[in-house]
Design a protein around this nucleic acid. Structure first.
Lengths: 233, 233
DNA sequence: CCGAAGGCAAGTGCATGCACTTTTTGACTG
DNA sequence: CAGTCAAAAAGTGCATGCACTTGCCTTCGG
């Protein structure tokens, strides 16, 4: 090995590669359809191709990249249809989490949720988009954890991360912050009074609205992004 | 390479390994906690360690195996708690599929579902456990597909496969076949009349019952299965 | 007889190399 | 000048090798 790795964090090299690549995909730095060349990635991270290959395999198992035998890997291309399906699933998963949260959250969790939610009102007034986005992620995480079910939690988190590249679009819409807060408010209120059905419905509606906002920005046709990559080279 | 592989089916070597190992885990041939030695697996399938490692990585990403850095891989050990969480998720996912099926199945799908379901009554009368199990898998697959949502379908299928090792126990209970058929019947009836809510509830209840039946057979403590492996060597 | 230290065997983690497949390129032909 | 074909280039798939880590077992001091 050529000494210590460049950007070491923790875990094995493969784990680091998985995180590094997943990060770049989820944040949109690597675009759907973009070619993932083993050699280049290996050079880029200063490792051999072996761990890169393993990382790509795992990412492919997670659905973040697509692997065509003998023809390399690309960042997973998501069709309009599949995207809709993922948002739909997300809405259902959030609904489940909200419902369970309403039924199962400890009083400490409830207090904390409400407190944070009320605090976020300030961010809306200030129009602090970025801070609100940060809070928003936290808010949803609380719901996932509040369901007190590790597997539901995992399914939801994974689905959410796969949707991440498509969510960024939503905040470009005017008045989005206030709207989002209102929707959160309905969810929180339902949870506070232990009304699972209402919390579930509110959460589902919340996601559905985000979904509609994002759909507009989705890639209409896989071909497009596939073409764009040749430019990059 | 040492000529053609022993048990070739299709795809790359790694894919075959993933399927082969996943199969052995899901069917219970490999037991939770059992050691997965790279060298032995490589010898067993007559490949080098490289594809075995990749396969284990992917299986770990899928949650079927657990990898401890520098300390090898074992078949994922599922705690009582996590198992409960998975059954719970499964119930919710099945509920979603049933609800969507009730709302979205084409008339051809409905007809076919009902036909197959009615046909399975014979298997119950005959007490054909194995055949019924085969039909049962098919029945549920129809519901998953009937939801017309690829992502929900995927989530459900993966969760189901992870639960597979724990489901085998259910048919040991007497009168299980008739009970299962009755439960299916409620689901089918609700789907036929397009009643999503009823179909969802029925499907959820159906899984919950299986869950209770299986829980009894689950490993009470991870330690136990971890110990059993040393015997096998 | 118990426990710590050290060495050994087994096994993992990654780099490298070679065979094979796909893609590209460029000369040649109709 | 477009189309075809072959050879080179690029890139993937797997095997092999070596360094390192872990767990075990021996050995020695207490």
């Amino acid at each position: 090995m050529s000494g210590k790795r460049g950007l070491v964090r923790s875990g094995t090299t493969v784990d680091q590669m998985v995180r590094a690549i997943a990060d770049r995909i989820v944040t949109g730095y690597l675009r759907p359809g973009e070619r993932l060349d083993e050699g280049s990635l290996a050079a880029r991270f200063d490792v051999s191709r072996t761990p890169v290959r393993e990382a790509l395999g795992q990412l492919s198992a997670m659905g973040l990249v697509e692997r065509r035998p003998n023809r390399g890997a690309i960042v997973a291309v998501i069709t309009q249809e599949h995207l809709a399906s993922m948002f739909e699933s997300m809405a259902e998963l959030e609904a489940i989490c909200a419902r369970f949260s309403a039924e199962r959250m400890t009083s400490a969790e409830r207090r904390s949720l409400e407190l944070e939610h009320q605090g976020s009102a300030r961010l809306v007034q200030l129009g602090a988009e970025e801070d609100y986005e940060y809070f928003n992620t936290d808010f949803h995480s609380r719901l996932y954890r509040g369901a007190h079910s590790t597997h539901i939690h995992d399914l939801t988190v994974t689905t959410r991360s796969r949707l991440a590249p498509f969510r960024r679009a939503q905040f470009m819409l005017p008045g989005r912050l206030a709207k989002s807060w209102q929707e959160h408010d309905v969810i929180v209120t339902a949870i506070m009074r232990g009304d699972g059905a209402a919390a579930g419905k509110a959460a589902r509606d919340h996601v559905s609205i985000v979904s509609e906002a994002s759909a507009v920005f989705a890639v209409p046709n896989p071909m497009e992004s596939r073409l764009s990559l040749s430019v990059r080279r």
